[in-house]
């Protein structure tokens, strides 16, 4: 699809622009997706600190690896966004993938951690990176996929980006409070990641339904 085609598809007045660039369901699902991502981040960091230590070196490795995973995911999502016809379908699959990983994550960390105590700092960093690569890659993919979906509708990169960034970050902001005042105190680590996995699964279902509804749209 060329930029001319995109431009031709864009509605001409501002009102149409607002409607077409910001369907409420996208805002909601990306909010929930951001919420789940931060719950994972808080819980996984805690779990990994218990395994690899809470000294500065270990904490830096975990935080940096999490960021790098998101970055790699962003690139992968960007590459997919150029070739996939149905970014919503890929988005839904990503959410299902995150949910699946979330459910097994803590037990996986524990199992790997119990066999990784003798690793050097570099090997520990690599192990942590590999542990977090799959979920963070999937999380990082979501933004470019949704941006390209919205840009195809609105033709406005800045507004699409700002909307998605806003809702996703707001969801994460709410999760940062919920994680320490509600989820972890009441449900513990396992219960918290189950809540996050349920959120991802629900997002996946909604997005998949939207994809099925819209797949034949031009």
């Amino acid at each position: 699809m060329t930029s001319d085609v995109v431009a031709a598809k864009v509605a001409t007045d501002d009102r149409n622009l607002e409607v077409s660039e910001a369907p409420a369901w996208i805002a909601i699902v990306f909010f929930v997706s951001g919420f789940a991502a931060l719950v994972y981040q808080v819980v996984w960091q805690r779990a990994l600190f218990a395994i690899f230590g809470i000294n500065t070196e270990a904490v830096t490795v975990v935080v940096t690896v999490f960021l790098l995973g998101l970055g790699v995911g962003s690139i992968v999502g960007g590459l997919f966004s150029r070739v996939v016809r149905h970014p919503l379908l890929l988005f839904a699959i990503s959410e299902f993938g995150i949910a699946g990983f979330g459910l097994v994550s803590l037990d996986l960390f524990k199992r790997v951690g119990s066999n990784a105590f003798d690793l050097s700092p570099v090997a520990t960093a690599i192990t942590t990176f590999l542990l977090l690569l799959a979920p963070t890659l999937l999380m990082g993919m979501t933004l470019p996929l949704l941006v390209v979906y919205l840009v195809r509708q609105s033709g406005n990169v800045g507004r699409s980006m700002s909307l998605l960034y806003f809702v996703n970050t707001a969801g994460s902001g709410l999760a940062s409070l919920a994680a320490v005042f509600l989820l972890m105190p009441r449900l513990g680590e396992h219960g918290s990641v189950r809540v996050a996995a349920f959120a991802n699964f629900a997002v996946g279902v909604v997005v998949l339904a939207q994809h099925l509804r819209r797949r034949d749209e031009p």
Binding site: S3, G77, P87, P144, V148
Partner: peptide, 18 residues
């Protein structure tokens, strides 16, 4: 630019930010 490359170009910006 708002074209088909928007997603991938954004991903590089996002990566650089990260």
């Amino acid at each position: 630019a708002p074209n088909v490359l928007a997603g991938s170009r954004l991903s590089y910006l996002y990566l650089a930010n990260i």
